[in-house]
Amino acid sequence: MIDVMLYLGAFLLLCGSAFTLLAAIGILRLPDLYTRMHAASKAGAVGGGMVLLAVALVCFEGAVALRAIIGVLFLLLTTPVSAHLLARASHRAGYIPNKITVLDEIQTIKKSQSGP
């Protein structure tokens, strides 16, 4: 039983680390701020959450496991909020998306309002 938990925890730990690594690769390879945000917010949250779940699985202690799970919930709640805040702040401050962006409806709406 303990062995099964350990194998499962090791699997979760490896998956979480792999996702975190992929988030870091994404933040380096993707072309602009807004696409990078996808990598950091999703892969980052899943990676960190999986590692915390692995800790919860292998600690064999109720209080510690509960704390780790609350940590996961906290991570899942805060990551989208901070990504959203950063995206909103950057767009309002005037950081424009990369040229390969096919459509930017915030820009077009602002232009049509300030037009006539």
């Binding site: 996702f19 992929l22 988030a23 690769i25 994404g26 390879r29 993707l30 072309p31 602009d32 807004y34 696409t35 996808h38 990598a39 999703k42 892969a43 998306p97 990369n98 390969i100 962006t101 096919v102 459509l103 930017d104 409806e105 915030i106 820009q107």
Partner: peptide
């Protein structure tokens, strides 16, 4: 996202839009 990140030709795989 992981699959997109690992695509060799990144610019062809992306079609970002708002």
């Amino acid at each position: 996202v992981a699959i997109v990140v690992l695509t060799p030709n990144l610019r062809a795989a992306l079609r970002p839009a708002i």
